[in-house]
């Protein structure tokens, strides 16, 4: 009971608190603790801090509203799961852009039609150079999230081969 003044073995004490001693060491330190108020006090104050930390973190977790995070999570997943054309359709449906479906179809037709003479085209830059003719309007858009480029060409006149090739 009276060895109040010894130098506390803090390393041992830490290992004891963390369950990192083997059983012999355990028994020894347990015995020592019964005898030594200094070490008991040390263990006690570490224990207080420890329980205060645990209590506060646990309380924070219990009081946290996960709802908004869950909402963001499932929104992100929905976006990830939906095929791009559904997202595109939604984007179009927002009213920011209105493209008649017929024009879209025309775009595709003009696009492929104009590709016919240049058979050896392989990349997008080459495609652009092969398009020729008169158009009332050409609109290039990008979808906000995916950066997919939509080229909208409204054709008015028949294609005549004025040379636009660079």
């Amino acid at each position: 009971m009276k060895n109040n003044s010894h130098k506390i073995d803090h390393a041992l004490l830490n290992a004891w608190m963390d369950n990192e001693l083997d059983s012999d060491e355990y028994a020894m330190f347990d015995d020592h603790l019964k005898e030594c108020p200094a070490c008991r006090k040390e263990v006690m104050s570490h224990g207080q801090i420890s329980s205060l930390i645990t209590k506060n973190i646990e309380q924070a977790a219990e009081n946290t509203n996960f709802g908004p995070m869950n909402q963001r999570l499932f929104d992100a997943l929905e976006k990830r799961n939906k095929p791009w054309w559904i997202r595109l359709a939604r984007f179009m449906g927002t009213g920011k852009v209105l493209i008649p479906a017929g024009t879209l179809a025309a775009v595709v037709l003009v696009f492929f039609f104009s590709m016919q003479p240049a058979a050896s085209i392989s990349g997008p830059s080459a495609l652009v150079s092969s398009v020729s003719g008169d158009y009332a309007s050409v609109m290039i858009m990008e979808t906000p999230n995916e950066q997919q480029t939509i080229i909208w060409i409204q054709e008015t006149a028949s294609i005549d081969n004025k040379d636009h090739k660079g």
């Binding site: 973190i57 646990e58 924070a60 977790a61 946290t64 996960f66 869950n70 999570l73």
Partner: peptide, 14 residues
């Protein structure tokens, strides 16, 4: 998500 979010939150918050 329901099962693990609180435990993981504790870890992250710690």
């Amino acid at each position: 998500v329901q099962q693990y979010q609180q435990r993981l939150y504790k870890t992250a918050y710690g």
